[in-house]
Computed example of a mutant assay.
Amino acid sequence: MPFPSPSRTRPGPRRRSLLAVASTAVVLAGCSAGSEDSDATGGSRPSAAKRARARAARDSAGLVEQYDAVIAAHPGLTARLRPLREEVVRHVEAFGGAGRASSPTASDASPPSAASAASPSPSPSVSPSIDVPGNEKDALAALASAERDLADRRTRELLELPGEEARLLASVAAAGAAHVYLLTEGNR
C-alpha cells in the first residue's frame, strides 16, 4: 500500500519559524557577547570585577589591621592569631593588594614571646579607630565577628561576579568561615 503524497507543505520548519529563531539567537548573542567579551569593548563587567577585587583587597587589608590591633592589645594571643593573620595577608595579595608582612606577627622564625617583647605594637599604620575589647575572649569574639561579617558579605557577592573572580571570592569566604571556627573554638 503506497503512502499518500504530502500536500503542498514542505518537510522541516517553516520560514517564519526560522526567522523567529534566528532573531532570538541574534538578540541572545548580542546580550551575552556584551557581558562576556567586554574586555575588548570596555564594557561594565570587567570593571565590575576589578572593582570587586579592589574592594576585597581593601576589606582584607582592614581585617589585617584588626588582627594587628588585637595582637597589639593582647600579646598573649600572638601565637594563636599569627597563622590566621598571615593567611589574611595572602588574601590581600591574591586580590591584587599589597600585603603587609612587616609586623611582629610576621617576624621570621622567632618565638611569639620574643616577637611580642621585641616590638609591642604591630605597626605604625594600625588604625587608631579600631576598638579592641579589654579581655582576650571578647577580643577574639570581635575578630570572629569581623571575619563572619566579611565572609557572609563575600558569599552574597558571588552571584554578581564572573567565573574566576567568583571562585577566588568563594575560596576566601570559605577561609574566613574557617577562621571564625578557629577563633571561637577555644572560647567554649
Rank of each mutant, 00 (worst) to 15 (best):
D149E: 14
P11W: 08
H179R: 12
R154I: 00
C31E: 03
R167W: 04
Y181T: 10
R148S: 14
V92M: 08
A175K: 10
E165N: 11
D152P: 05
T24K: 01
P111V: 09
E160N: 04
A72M: 06
R148E: 14
R45V: 12
V27A: 14
S32G: 06
S103Y: 13
R14I: 00
S125Q: 12
E93A: 10
A175T: 15
R8G: 15
V26E: 02
G62L: 02
P13N: 03
S121C: 00
D152N: 13
L143V: 03
S35T: 12
R45T: 03
L81Q: 13
V70H: 05
R51N: 05
P112S: 15
G186L: 01
R16V: 04
R10H: 05
N135E: 14
V172L: 10
A146C: 07
D68K: 04
P128V: 11
P83S: 08
R15Q: 10
R82G: 06
L18N: 05
R188I: 08
E136F: 00
A29Y: 01
S107V: 13
V180R: 08
A144Y: 05
S123W: 04
A49P: 04
V27C: 07
A54V: 03
S102I: 03
A49Q: 09
L140R: 11
L77E: 07
R153V: 13
A114N: 06
S125H: 11
S171I: 06
A69W: 07
T155L: 08
K50T: 07
A98H: 13
S7K: 00
E65R: 09
P11N: 02
I71R: 12
R10I: 01
L183F: 12
E136D: 10
E86S: 12
G134N: 08
R167L: 08
P112Q: 05
P11G: 03
G76K: 08
V126A: 05
E165R: 09
L159V: 15
D39W: 14
G96T: 09
G163N: 06
D138W: 00
L19P: 01
E87W: 00
S17Y: 13
R14H: 10
E136M: 01
L168I: 11
A170M: 04
S119R: 10
N135C: 03
L169V: 13
R15W: 11
S7N: 13
A109L: 15
S38Y: 05
R55N: 08
S35N: 01
R82H: 05
P4C: 09
A177T: 10
R80S: 14
R16K: 07
S60M: 07
A48L: 15
D131E: 11
A25T: 15
S44A: 09
Y67R: 03
A166T: 11
S119G: 04
E160Q: 09
D39N: 03
V64K: 14
K50Y: 03
S44R: 10
A61P: 02
G43Y: 06
P6D: 03
P124F: 00
